[in-house]
């Protein structure tokens, strides 16, 4: 089942939450809507679900080419998982999952036996067998999350929509659950769109990442594409760490620093900065200000001698050892790969 949003606009007063968004999600894909808070990603998700409506006169929502713009949420056959799960507090896990089946019209409602089988099957699927009789408040955050997922799947949705699915969980559970969600998605193979503000999360599990900012889509691409070839300055800053250098400082007439960019800036990731001893003339002089070596990579904070701009660099621990660096040492910097946004290229 594909999802298509065409020219979706939504304004709250004078604030444009969505300024004409077009998006297409291919069937069976796991797609992340990534952006900072206020970028419009949750609004877009809720409009796709039918929980909110786009501004009158703006575009359409299509599921597999079928126009669902005017359908109420219950008839769109979407599974929606809320950020805080929105489990029904007064119902057991079993009744929460069974809810969507019980509210069906009598002739579409499965008989009690079949209903119970389906609930149990779903509980097995989300790896929570035996928890039928619990109430939501008796579950851990990760368990609630999976119950919410099972409840959404019970109605056999055409698409699955998740709003910050791991936002309310602590870091360790988050990492486990997102890997689990990836495997789970491969198993059930339902088109899934999830909202997140965590780039690590999006890059790790999504087939495709949609990066939003200020009500617009900045870039759509595979995780590798958006990381390696960010389409806009925003994406470059938002996805991964980056140093933004003023071009004169970066260039300094030095060939190894590549071209002076037309927007006056160079975007370079910390790991794309090479540090060499302060010999020869290639690169830019900088002073080591801080060395943070507690981790797989060593992170260095350096200050350029000429411009006094601060640069973050990441090098491997063996490299650090080979350079034998200390704080206040003078070194030279070279860029392996940099971006400018008049035309994107790599050195």
């Amino acid at each position: 089942m594909s999802i298509e949003a065409q020219n979706i606009r939504r304004a709250f007063g004078t604030f444009a939450a969505l300024a004409g968004v077009d998006l297409k999600v291919e069937p069976g894909k796991l797609v992340a809507l990534l952006g900072p808070s206020g970028s419009g990603k949750t609004t877009l998700l809720r409009i796709i679900a039918g929980l909110e409506f786009a501004d009158p006169g703006s575009g359409r929502i299509l599921f597999d080419g079928e126009d669902v713009t005017d359908l109420p949420p219950g008839r769109r056959k979407v599974g929606f998982v809320f950020q805080h799960y929105a489990l029904f507090r007064h119902l057991t896990v079993f009744e929460n999952i069974a809810f969507g089946l019980r509210v069906r019209r009598r002739r579409e409602r499965p008989p009690e036996r079949e209903l119970a089988d389906r609930v149990r099957h779903l509980l097995d699927l989300v790896q929570l067998p035996g928890l039928e009789a619990r109430y939501p408040h008796q579950l851990s955050g990760g368990q609630r999350q999976r119950v919410a997922l099972a409840r959404a799947l019970a109605v056999e949705p055409r698409v699955l929509l998740l709003d910050e699915p791991f936002g309310a969980l602590d870091a360790k559970v988050r990492r486990e659950l997102r890997r689990w969600l990836r495997r789970f998605h491969d198993e059930i193979n339902v088109t899934t769109l999830f909202v997140t503000h965590d780039q690590e999360e999006a890059l790790e599990i999504a087939d495709e990442v949609v990066i939003m900012n200020q009500g617009r889509i900045e870039q759509v691409g595979t995780p590798q594409e958006v990381y390696d070839r960010p389409a806009t300055p925003f994406v470059h800053q938002f996805v991964g760490n980056v140093n933004i250098l003023r071009a004169p400082a970066a260039g300094g007439g030095d060939a190894s620093f590549g071209r002076v960019m037309r927007d006056g800036r160079i975007y370079v990731r910390p790991q794309d900065i090479e540090i060499v001893p302060h010999e020869g003339r290639d690169g830019l002089s900088a002073i080591v200000r801080h060395i943070h070596a507690a981790g797989p990579q060593a992170r260095l904070t350096l200050e350029q001698v000429q411009s006094r701009e601060v640069v973050e660099a990441e090098i491997s621990r063996p490299e650090l050892g080979a350079l034998n660096l200390r704080v206040n040492d003078l070194v030279r910097l070279r860029l392996r790969q940099a971006h400018s946004f008049d035309d994107s290229y790599a050195i």
Binding site: G50, L51, E52, F53, P72, P73
Partner: peptide, 11 residues
């Protein structure tokens, strides 16, 4: 006084 809503709602 309360005025009619300007927007559709899912509820």
């Amino acid at each position: 006084m309360a005025t009619a809503r300007t927007r559709r709602s899912a509820l």
